[in-house]
Amino acid sequence: MSVNNKRVFYVKYLAHPIYTEIMQARPDIRFDRLENDSSDEIAAPIVAAAHVYQIGAARDEIARHFHVDQDLLRRAPNLLLVSSNGAGFDPVDVDACSAAGVLVVNQSGGNAHSVAEHALAMMLTLSKRIIEADRALRREANVNRNALIGTEMQGKTVGVIGIGNVGRRIAELCKGLLGMTVLAYDPYLTADEVAARGGEKVNLDDLLRASDYVSISCPLTKDNRGMIGVREFSLMQPHAYFITTARGFIHDEEALLEALRARKIAGAGLDVWAKEPPPPDHPLLQFDNVLASPHTAGVTREARENMGRIAAEQVLAALDGKRPPRIVNPQVWPDYAKRFERAFGFAPG
């Protein structure tokens, strides 16, 4: 086996050290780490020689010049595969990768349990008004508990936007634990496929009108940016809660702010933001009925190890000529296969 003839690099961080352990056990792979502030003298030859870029999923944690766009692809003529640390792939221009014959993969499903539990925790905390009660106790004497009457989730309706790996787990938890009705909006699945995942397929407007809880769990794409805005919040019921553990920019933060000010909805649970982390003086953080976290829904010990392992295994499978299981742009496979064969002398299977 040739030594170091396959090149993999990453910038700043990985999901878990297990990724490094798996990679460094392979003598045919050279594994490089760069920092956001690595000099061009150090970074340029590594990027130029790389076959695989293992990239962070959070756009604000990676320096802009290390985002995968046309500029980086010009600097990386040998790049075959871009692998996201997570289910999302915000720092990656998928269209530019496809045009260059570069395969993009993610780790969808690797943190589904953690994210779904976080979404459910947010729903319960908001429903029982736990965060409001906690804040009141910390700043007031003689808190009136009757001013903090909550609601039960049992038997209510949850609307799941995107019933993929995370969404279907949210559906399972809500239906199984709390006997909830699950509505789902997912234009990529048939009614039978949605039913198999525990939901009833409906259009977006009907979901917003009928749901006591609206939970977003779809990836950010060019098609759903700004999908939840002024009109959509106006369709929700005044007692309904908005929850998102997906990505910033799917919902319009200014529109959500106005909906909360006008009391058009009961509150929100926000794990994702336009700017991550949001500044302490962010207007949405000033509401007691907003439960906030800094994109930590999928940040558990179990999820991080799982993500690191499946990311490494998927990259190694690809470098060994196998078809990865989590391809974001499958239409590029023929071009990718030709480039792979030119690089390594054999065609991927």
Rank of each mutant, 00 (worst) to 15 (best):
T125C: 14
V104Q: 12
E132W: 00
A87M: 12
L81P: 06
R135T: 13
V94Y: 00
F89L: 10
G159E: 03
D134Y: 08
V92R: 04
E140Y: 07
A119L: 08
R135S: 12
A87R: 05
S83Q: 15
A100Y: 03
G150D: 08
V102C: 04
G109F: 11
N144P: 01
A136W: 07
N142V: 09
S127I: 03
G155I: 01
L126G: 03
G109N: 10
S83Y: 02
S83D: 06
E117K: 02
A87S: 15
Q107G: 04
A96S: 10
R138A: 15
R145C: 04
V92A: 09
A99Q: 14
T157D: 07
A119G: 13
L79Q: 04
I149V: 14
P91Q: 09
R135G: 06
N111V: 02
G86C: 08
R129N: 02
V160R: 08
V92M: 06
V143N: 04
L126S: 01
Q107E: 09
I130N: 03
L126I: 03
V92E: 06
V115P: 03
M123L: 08
Q107W: 01
A96M: 09
D95C: 03
T125Y: 00
N142E: 12
T151L: 09
E140D: 13
D90T: 12
T157L: 06
R138D: 13
A136T: 06
R135E: 12
G109S: 04
M123I: 13
N106E: 07
A147L: 12
G88D: 11
A112M: 03
R138E: 14
F89V: 10
A141F: 12
V115I: 14
S108W: 07
